[in-house]
Design a binder for these strands. Structure first.
Lengths: 344, 344
DNA sequence: TACGAATTGGAAAGCGCTTGCCCCCGATCG
DNA sequence: CGATCGGGGGCAAGCGCTTTCCAATTCGTA
């Protein structure tokens, strides 16, 4: 059943050359004479030889894979980021080990162990919390680390992120300008820096408009998922009518979609009774029951840039400058917040 | 910067034992005396030793990773499948290399090469076409192969799928029963067996009702995405009113969401003017502008089962029986098709 | 024709780990 | 009390590949 497992030696024998020469054909084809090269290549394809990357990696010290650790595979935001990463790495012939921490520090840590055992070239990660200690240790061992969707606090670690504070501000300002004075913020877990920053941005927008910051009421969620969104909406609707928010700003679109579902179920009209703004502008936001206003992030670009930074650091360590790339988000207004409230 | 790369030898020295003993502590702790074991363990943690999986793999012949090749990472169907896979493999301490063929045979093949180089234990794959030849070759080389969301035609290859024909039938029958006589089928690329089977199922439902099969009109799409769905809807609406379909059955929910968007944009009422049924029942289907009827598949279970099959074959080759697992889909009726048409 | 330079390919030393084999030593048995 | 037994651990041979160092061959040139 299991084939004969052809190795570089078999190729060498068949081509009538030494093992070293075959290796050269594989890695530095230019230094071997054309005639020998074709002969070796022929032997390779005759035998169906596929080099063993483990052996290569063992010899070279580091492999051709890199790890990508995200908070949630099921979140389209992250799948788009992953696409960007893949785009950049695929071109460089590298494999991506895709890990899903699910926002759980324990799982995150387990995956980091695994990646370390694999001797990956580097790790692109959206950390669950500020687990910098663990990441610094990784780096000290020679594993490149690039923070994804999170600003690095250390000058010697690259990061690619989007200005979440600004995003929060855009959303907050938009809601204030359309007349809202009681706004609910749905997000969580609070442990996530993204959530805190988006909240802070919204608070800033309120202050800027001369409003008291307690106009923005936090509804924490256990996770950034559709189900958690439905749950949060139920809590919001549980408030006495007079104190109830007239607008909801969600830390991501999954939550917003959940909120929207629950509001619809309870027959609350969006945006007339409650306006809604999400975050990420995932593809499904535009297709929602009420097309969702959302803060757009350059998702694929985020991934592509992070991967590029890593590859650069890996291939040209001397040229490479550590940097914190920050993109700007952009507010996309759709139905869900297209209703201007009379001041009350 | 790069740390001292501690190897098993350093651990051995520090613990005052031989390299072999350290290895034994790692792999067969029971055969090592308790006192030695604790000493070694202490050394390991003092030094922060992390075993090099490449070396282990080289020695053992095969690694602790497996490949998962899907048609589209951005499709929630596949991310849910991936979650199932991860669930099963994570428990077994295995890593998943997540690959995205994007429905492109070339990319698929490139990823297969890569996985082969990595000497993965096995590959879980939703093949782009019936590229069985390539997969059989893989198998002959000792790489386990399990087909995912696709029925295996060979008795010696495991597969886990959902009965797509039945799914198509359920959708078709439902539409026929609610009075539709002109139905559009949106799906593609036609190359995908899933698409063809779902279509065939719907055709069967028509026949069963004594209707001519040309009542089901195919609108092929280049890809199973939201954008392609919008495009297909435009084509459907381009038909003369009299011949225009009163219902659309889409080969997946992404397409259905796209169709819905375009219909809404052109102010065609769903379901009154045109009813809509999707496939997969992704989470976003229920949250759509008009909640989408859809054929539900046990997504996570699909992934979990496939991974379990692979692990079983890997760990207990003698016990293992190759099998073709087939789950049954289920129709979930929501707003988008909840309107019964008068016969015309 | 002959010498050195340049080119080409071979030999061999590991990379870090697993594992079969063997040895040592204290315990058990006749 | 000597021979036997068996558990614990050391030794060393590679796994498949890369890469450095050299030897051999070829070519250009005087």
């Amino acid at each position: 059943m299991a084939g004969p497992a052809v190795s570089i030696r078999d190729v060498a024998t068949r081509a009538g050359v030494s093992v070293g020469t075959v290796s050269n054909v594989l890695n530095r084809p230019d230094i071997v004479a054309a005639s020998t090269r074709t002969r070796v290549l022929a032997a390779i394809s005759d035998l169906g030889f596929v080099p063993n990357d483990a052996a290569r990696q063992l010899r070279r010290g580091r492999g051709r894979t890199l790890g990508l650790v995200v908070l949630d595979v099921a979140n389209p935001f992250f799948t788009d980021v992953a696409k960007g990463v893949e785009e950049a790495t695929g071109a460089a012939g590298m494999a991506v080990i895709f890990c899903n921490s699910d926002g759980d520090p324990v799982r995150e840590s387990a995956y980091l162990d695994l990646l370390e055992e694999q001797r990956v070239q580097g790790v692109l990660i959206t950390p669950v919390d500020d687990a910098n200690e663990r990441l610094v240790r990784l780096r000290d061992r020679g594993v490149l680390v690039v923070l994804l969707d999170r600003r690095s606090t250390r000058p010697d670690v690259c990061s690619v992120s989007v200005d979440d504070r600004l995003g929060g501000e855009l959303a907050g300002r938009h809601l204030v300008e359309t007349g809202h004075r009681q706004i609910a913020f749905v997000g969580g877990p609070w442990r996530l820096e993204q959530v805190r920053d988006r909240y802070a941005g919204a608070v800033h927008a309120l202050r800027e408009a001369g409003l008291d910051e307690d106009r923005l009421r936090r509804f924490d969620t256990a996770s950034p998922t559709v189900a958690a969104g439905r749950d949060a909406a139920a809590r919001i609707l549980g408030q006495p009518r007079s104190a109830r928010a007239t607008a909801v700003f969600c830390a991501n679109d999954l939550l917003a979609l959940g909120v929207l579902q629950e509001l619809t179920r309870q027959q609350v009209r969006v945006p007339e009774e409650i306006a809604l703004v999400g975050y990420d502008d995932i593809e499904f936001a535009a297709a929602a029951a009420v097309p969702l206003s959302s803060v757009r992030q350059p998702r694929q670009r985020l991934g592509r840039t992070a991967a590029a930074l890593m590859l650069e650091e890996s291939n040209e360590p001397d040229v490479h400058q550590h940097q914190q790339v920050i993109f700007e988000p952009e507010l996309v207004v759709r139905e869900s917040s297209r209703y201007t409230r009379r001041e009350s």
